[in-house]
């Protein structure tokens, strides 16, 4: 942390140079709310990076029912409508390092460094998007804007109202 601040002061020009040894990182916290409903299924959740025109730039996480027989869990992937339309429908599931099992209610923190899907991002303005869809439940989508690569630490957040709780995005150079 001590090292990060002076680096940020060096500004944008130094960023590509510093990237080699102080790799930029995005930390995402997604809250899946505890719901009092008669029939509860853990939501399908997709986290991805979109460009200002809403086209998908990188897939970060997709949590769905990976354990079902005959890959039947893929049947409901399309219920994450925006994700499905922008990127999901062109993908072959599962995706190494991206797809995983659904998660229980609570706060889930996931960290993405510049070596993974973010490595292909051109410099520019993006949104970090999370979309949740729940069987016999609803759907919700949240967006937090960020700049990539980061020249200074960025913090953004959004608050869900039914399928998602707090959504925070920390981008560190």
């Amino acid at each position: 942390m001590r090292i990060a601040s002076p680096l940020a002061l060096l500004g944008f020009a130094a960023a590509p140079l510093s990237a080699a040894w102080a790799a930029p990182e995005i930390t995402v916290t997604v809250e899946i709310p505890q719901l009092s409903v008669a029939e509860y299924h853990r939501p399908y959740v997709a986290i991805w990076v979109e460009r200002p025109d809403q086209s998908a730039a990188a897939n970060l996480s997709v949590w769905y029912d990976v354990g079902m027989r005959n890959r039947e869990g893929e049947k409901w992937l399309k219920d994450m409508r925006q994700w499905w339309r922008r990127t999901g429908r062109t993908l072959q599931m599962p995706i190494d390092g991206v797809t995983g099992a659904t998660r229980a209610p609570g706060r889930h923190t996931v960290r993405f460094d510049a070596r993974g899907p973010l490595s292909s991002l051109e410099p520019g303005q993006y949104n970090l998007v999370v979309e949740a869809a729940r069987e016999v439940g609803g759907r919700e989508l949240l967006r937090v804007p960020f700049q990539w690569p980061p020249s200074a630490p960025q913090n953004g957040s959004a608050q869900g109202s039914h399928e998602l709780g707090a959504f925070t995005v920390q981008v560190t150079p």
């Binding site: 039947e72 893929e74 049947k75 409901w76 992937l77 399309k78 499905w84 429908r89």
Partner: peptide, 8 residues
């Protein structure tokens, strides 16, 4: 009209 999965 929009479906996913292996055997829809």
């Amino acid at each position: 009209t929009v479906l996913s999965g292996e055997d829809p």
